[in-house]
Write a protein that binds this DNA or RNA. Sequence first.
DNA 1: AACCAGGGGTACC
DNA 2: GGTACCCATGGT
Length: 258
Amino acid sequence: MNIHVKEFDIKKIADSGQAFRIVEESPGIWRTVASGRVLRIDESAPHIPEGFWSDYFDMETDYSLYRAAIPKQDEFLTKAAQAGEGIRILRQDPWEMLITFIISQRKNIPAIRSAVEALCRLCGSEIEGEDVRAFPSPEQLCSASEEALRACSLGYRVPYIMKSARMVAEAVVDLELCRELSDEELFDELLKFPGVGPKVANCVSLFGYYRIAAFPVDVWIARIIDQEYGGNFPLQLYEGFGGIIQQYMFYYGRFRDE
DNA sequence: AACCAGGGGTACC
DNA sequence: GGTACCCATGGT
């Protein structure tokens, strides 16, 4: 049983900077790993199973309603939203997002991918019949040695990751209970982790907790706001779903020249 | 409030 | 094959 797939582009999602384990395994066939499961998607005939995966890919949401809020006079966003049609905000695992976005600081996307993959190979669980491993649990990560973590190209982030993993393993911060918090409370809670500042807390909120009002500002978004909006982006036009608009901006900012 | 941090990816030569 | 520059930043 499959739901009707529309406004879904796995290739764009793989390049959107929210998920780092989606790879083109063979031409046109994409493989993704989440919560210890593997799914393969044919980009020309996408087929999303009901249940876990349709929830993960947020298939119930109609993104055209969000794009409709963009004023026609806003040429940049109009083009960005057009170029980004098919991108969805994935409902990813908060723990995986926490560690992934601590890793992300001052790395480019290919470097984030390889570091995350190295971490999974180091201490993630095997997945039956697959070459890839699951993202490691907090306990698995805690059991890894500092030297082994350094070999994953994590650099100065190693202590942040080790301390954050311990905080989750010891439930100093309960990432599941955090689902009950308001956006502001969640943001403050995430800031308690070492290596997590405003940018990373917003990314974890948006991609790990589906807080679509969160609006992470990285170098790309800052550049766009500066160059296209004279330093003043009208975020109030998109109250409650700025994160979705941000995703179109990010994607278009990176790929409009290709 | 400047300044620094690992080092990988990439474009260019 | 060398090198210069950039990178979904945060801590000090």
